[in-house]
Simulated assay, not measured.
Amino acid sequence: MSEESKAYDAGAIVVLEGLEAVRKRPGMYIGSVGERGLHHLVFEVAEPALDEILTGTAGRVEITLTADGGVRVADDGTGLPVEHAGHIDGPPLETRLAVLFGGAQPANRRSLFGGHFGFGLGLAVVNALSDRLTADVRRGGARWVLAYERGVAVAPPTRTGPAGDSGTAITFRPDAEIFETREFSFDALAERFRELAFLNRDLDITLTDDRDPAAPRAIRFRFPGGPRDHIAEQRAPLHPDVIGFEREYSEMEGTVEVALRWCDSREERLASYANSLPTTGGGTHELGFRDGLAAAVNAYAREQQLLTPSDPDFIPTQLGAGLTAVVSVKLDRPEFEGATRDRLGNGPVRACVAEAVREHLAAWLRANPAQATTVLARISRTTRH
């Protein structure tokens, strides 16, 4: 054993406790100290507010980029419990803001991110990486204020008076000592909140930019029709109908929702998600979608004698030309592959999604022969390669 090896013992291990660990190694918690990590803070604060909508205890969430470089996330929910208020329904806000791993949130289809973040972990991380954070809670007829600087409480939770309504508003400003940039991208945030809104039709999200008083802007994201509403907004459709459905399968312990339409384009635009997380690496739900798509279209083409017995099936590049689609699965036990969690691995999902797509698309093709003819003509014109 070398002298260098002998020198490394228990005394050489540095233990980082509490929020100090987050400030010393921020990349371990938010991925980077650049723009990606900056935006991650917003999503962490928004998660509990959005989950309140999905559980039926809130109606809307408003996210505001403030003039001083901060962010305010406000909801009209029941108000997060405050430790000194004597409530016991869930981890109190004091704990969630100050303690890492304040409890475990199980992965399931009803949670917005399916257990992607530890319950209580996100708010504590945001608190640690902000030069100031304030929580304004209206709950049970009372108003409470909690204030922090770089994760340290300025004072105990303070009851400031009565409240005629309920809800939680958290305002934070990223710490310049931590981040390479504190300039939020309105467009990047809007893109992600738009995704969350069409993947979860109950969500009602408003994103406002107050940083430039001369040119304030705001966008409301609400899609009562889910992914179908999103696909309906795509340009140059080849056919008027948006093909869409939602179906539950006990075999995969979850649901699949698909919306698709062919457009006058050469490109394929397929976006897939698992428990509202983008799966840019694909996975079993994407494979199932392609299986079902090929089975339905090729079977219909042979029924209509557009393909003879000797003709080969249409290949993926032909089927995908001009196709715009959203494939979303929500699972009680999602299994992601890789450290970046961008590929879904649940085995039963492939067969379930394939069956659902094949059945629903086949029924649509038979019920809409004029639109089906347009689609098949577009696919037939695409060169094999």
Rank of each mutant, 00 (worst) to 15 (best):
E17C: 11
S32D: 07
D241H: 15
L93F: 04
L38I: 04
L365P: 03
H40C: 14
R72M: 11
M28V: 13
V145W: 02
D51P: 00
E177V: 01
R217W: 02
F117T: 04
I231E: 05
A295I: 02
N127F: 01
T181E: 04
Q371H: 05
D68N: 11
R366Y: 02
L307R: 13
D209F: 01
P227M: 04
H87W: 06
R247K: 13
A370W: 08
S185L: 03
E253H: 12
P81Q: 05
R350M: 10
G347Y: 15
N346Q: 13
G37E: 03
L306D: 00
T55D: 11
E191N: 12
V375S: 10
A356P: 11
V242M: 07
G118F: 06
S276V: 03
D332M: 08
A142P: 00
E253R: 15
R194D: 12
A142M: 12
P26K: 09
R302V: 04
D264Q: 14
E286R: 12
D210I: 01
E267G: 05
E35I: 10
L129Y: 04
V357Y: 10
L207R: 09
L287H: 04
P48Y: 13
H116S: 10
A153G: 04
D229Y: 06
Y249I: 02
Y300Q: 11
G320Y: 06
A354F: 05
G338Q: 12
E286C: 11
G69C: 05
V375C: 08
F289D: 03
G69T: 06
G120S: 06
W262C: 08
N200M: 09
I231D: 03
T317C: 07
D204S: 13
G281Q: 07
V152I: 14
E355P: 00
V349Y: 04
G118T: 04
R228E: 15
P81N: 06
A49I: 07
R343E: 10
I170H: 01
E149T: 10
D212G: 04
Y300G: 00
F113K: 00
R222S: 11
F223G: 05
G288M: 06
M1Q: 12
P92Y: 01
D136A: 07
L80S: 02
P316W: 01
P369R: 14
S5C: 14
D76N: 14
N368Q: 14
T308H: 07
L331D: 00
A98M: 15
F184I: 05
E337Y: 10
A85D: 10
D51M: 14
L123P: 02
P162Y: 09
G31N: 07
G225H: 09
G77P: 03
V33T: 15
V258W: 03
F245N: 08
R192F: 00
A107W: 01
P312C: 11
